[in-house]
């Protein structure tokens, strides 16, 4: 698997290149994007991003579980979990060697940009 890891800085850099905004503002827009998605999920709403996938909040009822180490029975409290359903498009792209090639060349061009900070 990939040894490199993409972070907020990479996303900010992508935004920075896209529109003529300052680096600071680009970073702020990435935060706003994530925060908007999160606040809808907190409401229990599904967030669908076309061609990418959807985030669905599922409600789990209380159930009796077992501590795997001690074998002790414990009640697992009701909780909400987040599930990501990748779109068919994303599933296909991840499996396509061609898209991997294109992605690689995209990335090579990106390397010329300075690393994003703050």
């Amino acid at each position: 698997m990939g040894e490199k890891s993409v972070t907020r800085a990479s996303l900010s850099h992508a935004v920075y290149k896209e529109v003529g905004l300052s680096r600071k503002e680009s970073a702020s827009l990435v935060e706003q994007f994530l925060e908007k998605v999160i606040s809808r999920l907190e409401e229990g709403e599904t967030v669908k991003l076309s061609l990418f996938g959807s985030f669905v909040v599922r409600k789990k009822r209380a159930r009796v579980g077992r501590n795997p180490k001690t074998g002790e029975e414990v009640t697992i409290t009701p909780r909400r979990v987040l599930v990501f359903k990748p779109s068919n498009m994303l599933r296909k792209r991840v499996n396509s060697v061609i898209s991997r090639g294109i992605a690689a060349s995209d990335r090579d061009r990106d390397e010329s940009g300075s690393p994003f900070e703050g």
């Binding site: 698997m1 990939g2 490199k4 890891s5 993409v6 972070t7 907020r8 990479s10 996303l11 992508a14 935004v15 290149k17 896209e18 529109v19 827009l29 990435v30 994007f33 994530l34 998605v37 999160i38 991003l49 061609l51 990418f52 987040l82 990501f84 994303l90 792209r93 991840v94 396509s96 898209s99 991997r100 294109i102 992605a103 690689a104 995209d106 990335r107």
Partner: peptide, 27 residues
């Protein structure tokens, strides 16, 4: 619109290269 697409695209491109995308506070 372009900004939102750029963010989503950046994540997609990374995944196509089998890279991880780590977003603290998100996942």
């Amino acid at each position: 619109e372009n900004i939102v697409s750029a963010i989503i695209n950046e994540i997609t491109v990374a995944l196509c290269q089998l890279e991880r995308v780590e977003l603290r506070g998100f996942g």
